Computed example of a mutant assay.
Amino acid sequence: MNEQFYELPQEKQLRIINAGLEVFSKNDYRHAVTDEIARKAGISKGLLFYYFHNKKSLYLYLFDYCASLIMNQVMGDGPGGSGDEPASGGNESGGKAARWETVTDFFELLEMAAEAKIKVLEKTPYLADFMVRGYYSEDGIVKEDLNRATMEAVSSAFKKYFRNVDYSRFKPEVPPMEIYEMLVWLTEGYLHDKRKSNASISIKEIMEKFYVWEKWLKQIAYKEEYQKMEA
């Protein structure tokens, strides 16, 4: 992409971002029309491609943007977006440690991360559907790049977010990373099935499902003396 995009006023950047998220969330990659994105953003298609050299460049930028937005929320860097404008992200706060850095229980951290993500989804229209479409995209043009970006993001987030966890609570035969991946797959699979059936997505229902899955996985992963869920 053209770095001059970052020199635009934030309001204009957000118009382009929101337009892209809306169109890509309602259509698979191949059928998303860049003319429609430009129209919704209030710019010409030529200008859109001046900032993003092609459709793929724009799509991958939006995927990275959303992943960063969610991670910033999880890491405690800001309140997320508001209204129909996603936040522009932020840098990890320095000095005073974020709350997640003081937590040593793996499953408590998972809950904190899930609740932070939900706040972003509640405030940012189209983000959930866009990300789910991306995770399950079968389009050969972007699939390989998305798979690589997803794997890198999951690995990086795990190493950073769970770095202070007390892994001695785990049964020796249970890999923590696989428990993390299982919970991610369960949640994303649920969202994917809802999208395929055109059913409405209830944030409350997602969290209810999440807490049940988390309880099951804790029983699988933790030694018996650590399995009791805290009130």
Rank of each mutant, 00 (worst) to 15 (best):
N2Y: 00
N2G: 02
E3G: 00
Y6M: 13
K12T: 01
Q13I: 09
L14M: 11
G20H: 04
R30D: 10
T34P: 01
A38N: 08
K40H: 07
A41E: 08
I43F: 05
S44R: 10
L48P: 07
F49W: 02
N54G: 03
K55D: 04
L58S: 02
L58F: 14
L62V: 11
M75E: 13
P79Y: 09
E85C: 10
G89Y: 01
G94N: 08
K96F: 15
A98P: 07
W100M: 03
E101L: 14
E101Q: 15
D105P: 05
E108Q: 14
L110M: 15
L110Q: 15
A114G: 03
A116C: 07
K119R: 13
K119Q: 13
T124P: 02
Y126F: 13
S137P: 07
G140A: 03
G140Q: 05
V142Y: 00
N147A: 05
N147P: 02
A149I: 13
T150Y: 10
A153I: 00
Y161E: 08
R169H: 12
E173R: 14
P175L: 04
I179Y: 04
Y180K: 05
T187M: 14
E188C: 04
E188M: 11
K196Y: 08
A199G: 06
S200T: 13
S202N: 06
I206A: 00
M207G: 00
M207D: 06
E208K: 15
Y211C: 03
K215Q: 10
W216K: 04
K218H: 06
Q219T: 05
Q219I: 04
K223H: 02
